[in-house]
Design a protein around this nucleic acid. Structure first.
Length: 581
RNA sequence: CGGGAUGUAGCGCAGCUUGGUAGCGCACCUCGCUUGGGACGAGGGGGUCGCACGUUCGAAUCGUGUCAUCCCGACCA
């Protein structure tokens, strides 16, 4: 490809609306342009990268025994009603109506469609197991798209779905996919960590996420991990053991005391001169419109996903001050935030109040707790006497770095991660309600045991930029670079330079190298800047030293430069390209 | 959805306070000059100033409304 004809417009400056590295770089280097919020044009350079990522995914999926197909982007409401998700999925599901007023949606994921395909085609255990996948644009009407390709509304995803006759079969396929994923991300030049995670709206029991750990701020997930063993988990799923703490209060008898203006835990513990580990904190949440009280040891935070799962909801938020006031009124109290407690709160918004206690409060004794009276707290309280231990006591606690690994007891560490893939064991979550069954050996019909496996293709490409860049631009891993190399004649007017540059260009092309020659009548600085910004893996410069028979060879990954003969430079590139796998 | 901000040429911005019919840098086109790190000179093209209504002789500028975009929080590949 001639640079003069390559469709690319590099910018002198970073776009003002971009925040993270990959977004800044991809726009400035001419890979993407935003069309509207969360929706991007993939320009020719970007499309080349995406196709390479896709092909790696495709090769590894095929090698792992999966079969590719393609499902529609527009889906009918009826299937989503069968699975029960038309109601549950929420506003991210982009709903629309056709000319006959029939309700449709843009596919955010394809469990419903694939399940309907399977139940039509997979009737016998003899046909199982099967793993089907597709690579396609998805649309999720995110509340707040951001970070360029890392969180768009429209994005490219590989989604795979497996169908097995048994849990054992599913587990085997799950392992198989986990291995394929590791190979895929490795080939894309990414270091990933496979971490335990919550299964969220997709559902199912066991799930893991593949996180890219970078030193940029682009990661949106906190990953807790242990250096001493293999434990790692997303913060929404991580568990830990707590170091010893003082959980027995100094109070000898239960009483109500004045605690004026102690609206926060800090103020309360300062006022009473006690550690926050003997205070039970009560937080008010609204889960799917229903009131939920969360009780937790006051030095710890609630993990909202865990709390939501404990209640069995799909949407959670902390209650507003107004809602809290209303709830107090309904139940005959008049206390504000800071003085709330579980005693006496019965109902709100037409629903009974659900109370969930975190494991941390169970062993606490003679503790301090809100009693729904302004400027007062109960002290020396105990479960079973002054206050009832809630029926549900479970883990709703957000892990913090330094707490102890649940597997080996060493302190946990935390890091930010970009989620590029995930795998779920769905079980019969979709096959059962959608009546997707096969006939087993014993002649009985049974629902498929399903798994699903996603990879964000466009996100993976963006994550690769987050992991490979420097002050000059992108440093693509060779396997996903839009072009492997660029040949730069310093002066297009110099006949010898042009001839040698062209020779190298032709040689590389002949050997299957994807190469660009910068034939533009630009000053050298412009060509170097562009080459580095765009991120060609190898940069071969033909300049004055060609009079001594030498060219300059630069490896973008390391920025190492050296002088060598043209044929040697070509040789290095050809060998490197042939060694991609 | 809660909080904050911004909409002026493809990109980055000024002008708005104090209303007078739009400007700078980059990019683009032509000519010259230049060719190892985003040169220089001369000339040129491109914007109904997000949109609507209002105030005014006159609105990018003032007012009201509206739409869009971005940032911080809660959700996800």
């Amino acid at each position: 490809m001639k640079m003069s004809k390559l469709f690319v417009q590099t910018l002198r400056e970073f776009p003002s609306d971009a925040e993270v590295i990959s977004h800044k770089m991809l726009v400035r280097a001419g890979y993407i342009r935003k069309l509207t919020s969360g929706v991007y044009n993939y320009l020719p350079l970007m499309w080349r990268v995406l196709k390479k990522v896709e092909n790696i995914v495709r090769e590894e999926m095929d090698k792992a025994g999966a079969q590719e197909l393609l499902m529609p982007f527009v889906q009918p409401k009826e299937l989503w009603e069968e699975s029960g998700r038309w109601e549950v999925y929420g506003k991210e599901l982009m709903r629309l109506k056709d000319r006959h007023n029939r309700e449709m949606c843009l596919g955010p994921t394809h469990e419903e469609i694939i399940t309907s395909i399977a139940r039509d085609g997979l009737k016998s255990y003899k046909q199982l197991p099967v793993n089907l996948y597709q690579i396609q644009s998805k649309f999720r009407d995110e509340v707040r798209p951001r970070f360029g390709l890392l969180r768009g509304r429209e994005f490219i995803m590989k989604d795979a779905y497996s169908f097995d006759t048994s849990e054992e079969g599913l587990k085997k396929e799950y392992e198989n996919m986990a291995k394929a994923y590791s190979r895929i991300f490795k080939r894309c030049g990414l270091n990933t960590k496979m971490v335990q995670s919550d299964s969220g709206a997709i559902g199912g029991s066991v799930s893991h996420e593949f996180m890219v750990i970078t030193d940029t701020d682009a990661g949106e997930n906190d990953v807790f991990y242990c250096d001493s063993c293999d434990y790692s988990a997303n913060s929404n799923h991580a568990i830990s053991n707590l170091p010893e703490a003082n959980i027995v209060g100094k109070y000898e008898k239960a009483e109500i005391i004045d605690t004026p203006d102690t609206h926060s835990i800090e103020e309360l513990s300062d006022f009473l001169k006690i550690p926050s580990t003997i205070i039970v904190k009560t937080l008010v949440y609204i889960v799917d419109k229903k009131p939920v009280l969360a009780l937790i040891r006051a030095d710890k935070q609630v993990e909202e996903t865990k709390l939501m799962n404990a209640v069995g909801g799909v949407d959670i938020r902390i209650a507003t001050a107004g809602e809290i006031e209303e709830m107090m009124g309904v139940n005959g109290f008049d206390a504000a935030k800071g003085f709330i407690g579980p005693n006496g709160l019965k109902e709100y918004n037409g629903y009974p109040v659900t109370i969930i206690a975190d494991n941390t409060v169970k062993e606490m004794k003679n503790f301090v707790i809100g009693i729904n009276q302004e400027d007062k707290h109960g002290v020396g309280y105990n479960w079973g006497s002054e206050v009832k231990l809630p029926e549900i006591v479970t883990d709703i606690r957000l892990v913090e770095a330094g707490e102890l690994c649940p597997q080996c007891g060493k302190p946990l560490k935390v890091t930010r991660g970009i989620e590029v893939g995930n795998i779920f064991q769905l079980g019969t979550k979709y096959s059962k309600p959608m009546n997707a069954v096969f006939t087993d050996v014993d002649g009985k019909t049974k629902p498929y045991v399903m798994g699903c496996y996603g990879i964000g293709i466009s996100r993976t490409a963006a994550a690769a930029v987050e992991a490979h860049y420097d002050e000059f631009g992108i440093k693509w891993p060779l396997a996903i670079a839009p072009y492997h190399a660029i040949v730069i004649p310093v002066s297009t007017k110099d006949e010898l330079q042009m001839k040698v540059a062209n020779d190298i260009y032709e040689t590389l092309k002949k050997h299957g190298v994807e190469v660009v020659i910068d034939d533009r009548d630009e000053r050298p600085g412009v060509k170097f800047k562009d080459a580095e910004l765009i991120g060609f893996s190898y940069i071969i410069t033909v300049g004055k030293s060609i009079n001594e028979g030498l060219v300059e060879f630069k490896t973008r990954e390391t920025n190492e430069k050296s002088q060598m003969k043209p044929e040697d430079a070509a040789e290095i590139v050809v060998t490197a390209v042939h060694n991609i796998k």
